[in-house]
Design a protein around this nucleic acid. Structure first.
Lengths: 158, 158
DNA sequence: CCCTATTATCTCGCCCGACGAGATACTTGT
DNA sequence: ACAAGTATCTCGTCGGGCGAGATAATAGGG
């Protein structure tokens, strides 16, 4: 076992402190989403779905029911139930595919976007303000670290 | 509306890019935990419980069933079921409280710690290696940003 | 020291999100 | 036009989490 590995597991080195900090951030962001969910009578999966839909929308892509379910790791039955819930709550609407009429495109209602902005806006503003206090090199470090961790977490297996 | 706010909502400014990056990191860390869960036949809640138990253990604290449930937002029935599952799978053991015999202390089995290290170790090593490439000022920026976001996400409401 | 109030956990019955299997509707290739 | 393939939906079931209440142990007033 190398010296570094011993330090990782045994002592709170300066790097490990940041690793735990990042985990804490992930946990708190999760809690923050959960509060949004509970406040609007949604389930965690519903929030994940809305976020996925808005991400796709921002990238200019249409999201079908199947693609949404796949992104969330649900099977077709669960996907139908999910879209049913979101539609019943007025957060999305089903639109039959124009070219391929088997498909169902799920579109986010403006009302849901507004609710999301209302809840996550202050936190985003706060983060942006924080970032405005750093210079280019510091921003590059933050960006580089986050990118590295994201890619490592995403690609590590399978 | 100020110039900054227009940029936040409308355009992908340099700050918003990092904000989305942070969210992506949170999502990927969640997926990574989910893979660990599925691989060992656990539910997301079980993983959260193990992490909470190990955090407490690292801080030298004994965790009772009640405290564990409160940390996860479960009621007593759910907590009992959770500890039942973890105990049946051999990840924890129940120990009757020494001083107060009503309490049940939940202790993590070494086997579970080893499984966790096996799964999360490589990712942690990768993050530590990344961090070793930055100087003090860059590390301070990363630490400062993460701390700020964590506190904002945790304290924003209620 | 006993009796009541309080605390910690567990048991029981229910709800509902997610799954597997299969039905239905539409499209594509021959 | 027909068979094979694809996208979504329906039905029955499983299981995590909840509310209500039972049980066991501690703490406090008389």
């Amino acid at each position: 076992m190398s010296r570094e590995q011993i330090e990782e597991s045994a002592g709170p080195g300066p790097e490990m402190e940041i690793v735990h900090l990042l985990r804490a951030v992930a946990v708190e962001l999760g809690r923050h989403s959960a509060r949004f969910a509970q406040r609007h009578g949604l389930h965690p999966t519903d929030v994940r779905a809305l976020i996925a839909l808005m991400d796709a929308s921002r990238a200019g892509e249409k999201t079908t029911a199947g693609r949404l379910g796949a992104a969330l790791g649900l099977n077709s039955a669960g996907t139908t139930a999910l879209v049913d819930r979101l539609e019943r709550a007025g957060h999305v609407r089903r639109v039959r595919g124009a070219g391929d009429r088997r498909k169902v495109v799920v579109e986010v209602e403006q009302r849901a976007v507004a609710l999301g902005r209302e809840h996550f806006g202050p936190l985003i503003d706060h983060a942006v303000t924080l970032l405005q206090g750093y210079d280019e090199r510091e921003l590059a470090a933050i960006r580089g670290f986050l990118t590295g961790v994201r890619d490592a977490a995403a690609g590590e297996d399978e």
